[in-house]
Design a protein around this nucleic acid. Structure first.
Length: 209
DNA sequence: CACATGATCGCCT
DNA sequence: GGCGATCATGTGG
């Protein structure tokens, strides 16, 4: 039984007509492709029968055993990281700095430990635009904790994802945030965000057109 | 805006 | 024993 943490009520929404759940193959594609495809998708959370969620606007790709920034780097395989080795479409949630949760969507197939970190989302209209701006704030706002790690997004449970419907956002690319220790991998261009979203994390966007 | 700091603890070596 | 895939707050320019 997963401990149910309450989402922020300001993220409440009606999920009907927002999109459809992608099939497993959507998640099994290469990780950069999935990281880009997730921009504009809705991450949903059900709590006591009501739905909450945000539209994903910022992601980072973590490329597994060859990526020093990834928890699965060098084939590290511990109980914490185990969900990264699951089939695409599972959730990998971990705790950072002893107090914040970060949520990832697992990509590729079983035994291929790659994932996409969800860094920011736009809350529904009316909510503060930066309510879910940051990987920990996104988890906090939607009530996602490490208890959800290993859950399958396709199992019809209380955490789900709806594929983007409509045009692709304008995507900007940069190195990943907070992985300075990862040597050469620290400069890889694996962070993707919606150029026009006011909900991207970090100090005020000022990326050139 | 740019930086610096503290909070807080699970995880890995 | 050391260190984070972070954030809010504080200072100074």
């Amino acid at each position: 039984m997963i401990a149910k943490t309450a989402p922020d009520p300001r993220t409440r929404l009606d999920p009907r007509s927002l999109g459809r759940q992608p099939e497993r193959v959507f998640y099994r594609r290469d990780t950069v492709t999935v990281a880009r495809a997730l921009l504009g998708a809705w991450l949903l959370r059900r709590f006591r029968g009501a739905w909450y969620g945000g539209r994903i606007v910022e992601t980072e790709a973590y490329l597994g055993v060859q990526d020093r920034a990834a928890h699965s780097w060098g084939s590290r395989r511990t109980p914490r990281v185990e969900p990264m080795y699951a089939d695409g479409g599972h959730l990998y949630v971990f705790l950072v700095y002893g107090m914040h949760s970060c949520a990832n969507v697992v990509t590729r197939g079983p035994g291929r430990p790659e994932a996409v970190l969800l860094r920011a989302a736009e809350a529904p209209p009316g909510a503060p635009p930066r309510l879910l701006s940051g990987p920990a704030k996104l988890c906090e706002g939607l009530g996602i904790t490490v208890g959800w790690s290993g859950v399958d997004l396709l199992s019809g449970g209380d955490v789900r994802l709806l594929a983007r419907r409509g045009p692709r956002p304008r995507i900007a690319v940069s190195p990943r945030i907070g992985v300075g220790y990862a040597q050469e991998a620290a400069s890889w261009p694996l962070r993707f965000y919606d150029r026009h979203s006011p909900s991207v994390s970090g100090p005020r966007r000022r990326e050139p057109e």
